[in-house]
Nucleic acid binder design. Structure first.
Lengths: 328, 328
DNA sequence: TCGGTTGCTGAGATCGGTTGCATTCACCAT
DNA sequence: ATGGTGAATGCAACCGATCTCAGCAACCGA
């Protein structure tokens, strides 16, 4: 148990430390026989290499930060979950950094990861974080951005096709017979929120009906109030994201509107939680797991050849119980 | 930008590295004048100490692992959120480790944190992880356990008073006029799940009515089916936790039962998400934020004097819209 | 004036690995 | 027998800090 270092293993195995080091990190440089012997000794002693010492000398570690504004938001939670896995498979250790959308905190994480010799990082930015500002940092050059497009900069990005997602929602709703289809916006400021909104405007036939969901905490209260006050209400609503959809449905219900009987609602994100909602939420699913592993691949690619890829994934429709034909 | 080390600063400031080191980590040991000069130079160069090198030499770092089975579960997400903050305030860097309830993964994290010289760790165990097994690890001795009691071992713990929580739920429901109050169990195996269940049995007047919520993914389907099939149904249900409550309400709704009109439901956890549920969930709130900071304090205390504290926090009732008087 | 403190700083070993270079040795062609 | 080659390993400097120990100057009382 007591302090196992590479020297202990080396002595026990009767070789020099450098040989032990090579046995672990460059196996092919050591004679098979020697290597196996070393590994056996290491195993017996319960030895593992110190990532700290390795990182210090190599000037590169396996720590990969995932920077998110709010882990309490299930979208980020699911992202974190799938990314830990994806990172683990590739030999990285994901470090979750929660910023609360604060620039100062974000900056702090960036310099911290820099000094931990993180090879790269993944960031799912909130509204208030300005990517360009982040690029000021040395470490900013090694970031991959999730769920936000920023083609002008040399920053790799992964997003899903918002327009197609909204289109899927429209198709579904129209096929059910809906004609007046409203939209509840999310927090404005993010590119995706903007993209989805734009897509809605483009695809809405006739006059668009936009309800503002208000700030995050109100969670749809305002949209529901707006809805209730309308004379000619839409028969279906597309929400900017699942959390907003939850809030809206809840607020609508407290005003006596039933979903989907009185109004259909479709969300956007495809959170697992949606399946447990009342009613189970029909939603446009983002391939969150794919986004995670692709982000890592893009980061590795950029590290290798400096290229900044921009991947756009396709969403898919998840039909559950929050949509039905319009009231006749 | 280029490689800033303590030696660079030392040379620039015209002193020896050890003086720079002291200026940072033991300011009182350096003459004020010298110290200020060094700090000024460091500032100018934009120098910060390498946490890696520090940890390596000191044999103690500021990385603190928070080990949770599933970050997708909002309870753990909220815990993670508040703990990052609490940890940050105290100068620690929280590392989120997601185990999926897998013993092997957990073990991996433990040895990893050991070799990162983490001073201690916080674990919110899932069913399948056996604390005693964890104690086998060197690092196991430095863990604080959240939401699970285990008084026999010398392991610090933080929990909330499950019994009192269930009692609050009962009081609320009874004051609304409910007499037949059922219970939907969570995943069995955790201590808290057991405690809540026991408390329910103790406090149920008359015959206890227990519905099994089934495995995690089914999320209350089974309980709802059970409920529907009953001849003499309870008028209110206490759920083992909020997620179960969500699942049950959703499943109940899909069978045509309305909450709270047909049956009242109260959850347990106090998730922020509950406020957006349909209907907004009445629930027993756990002081999650407190749990986080107390866990850290307990860990520090144990490191200091070896004592293993056991803190039990008091829950509180959050009345929202999922409860009402029974059908008359 | 001198031994004894006290306060501050420098020297250098050390933490646990990595890596370029030197060394050793077997093997092969000449 | 000689020199060349390549594989396997040892040697030692190095990554960026910490920390013990020693040195040095200033100051104190006798």
């Amino acid at each position: 148990m007591a302090d196992l270092s590479i020297d202990v293993v080396a002595k026990e195995a009767g070789v020099h430390r450098s040989t032990v080091s090579r046995a672990f990190s460059r196996p092919e440089a050591v004679k098979a026989e020697t290597r196996e012997h070393i590994m056996r000794v290491a195993e017996k002693l319960g030895y593992t290499m110190s990532p700290l010492a390795q990182a210090l000398r190599r000037k590169t570690s396996t720590f990969v930060p995932l920077i998110v504004p709010d882990i309490t938001n299930p979208f980020f939670a699911e992202l974190a979950k799938t990314m830990t896995e994806a990172a683990g498979e590739r030999g990285y250790q994901l470090m979750l950094c929660v910023t609360n959308g604060d620039e100062v905190q974000t900056a702090g994480y960036l310099t911290a990861m820099q000094s931990l010799y993180a090879p790269f990082g993944i960031i799912a930015p909130s509204t208030r974080v300005d990517i360009d500002a982040l690029m000021q940092f040395d470490f900013g050059q090694r970031l991959v951005v999730i769920d936000r497009v920023d083609h002008q900069a040399g920053v790799p990005t992964v997003t899903v096709d918002s327009r197609r997602g909204i289109e899927l929602a429209f198709e579904h709703l129209r096929s059910l017979g809906h004609r007046r289809i409203g939209y509840v916006s999310g927090i404005s400021g993010t590119h995706t929120a903007q993209d989805r909104m734009d897509a809605y405007h483009d695809l809405a036939e006739g006059e668009p009906i936009v309800l503002d969901s208000g700030a995050d905490t109100e969670a749809g209260e305002r949209a529901a109030a707006h809805f209730a006050a309308m004379a000619d209400r839409p028969t279906a609503i597309i929400a900017a994201n699942d959390m907003v959809a939850f809030g809206v449905i809840s607020a609508l219900a407290s005003r006596g509107f039933r979903v989907p009987e009185d109004v259909s609602v479709v969300g956007f994100d495809g959170l697992a939680l949606g399946a447990r909602f009342n009613p189970a939420l029909t939603t446009v699913r983002q391939p969150i797991a794919d986004m995670g592993s692709i982000a890592i691949e893009l980061a590795e690619k950029k590290a290798a050849d400096g290229s900044a890829g921009h991947i756009v994934l396709q969403p898919e429709l998840l039909v559950r119980s929050s949509t039905a034909g319009p009231r006749t």
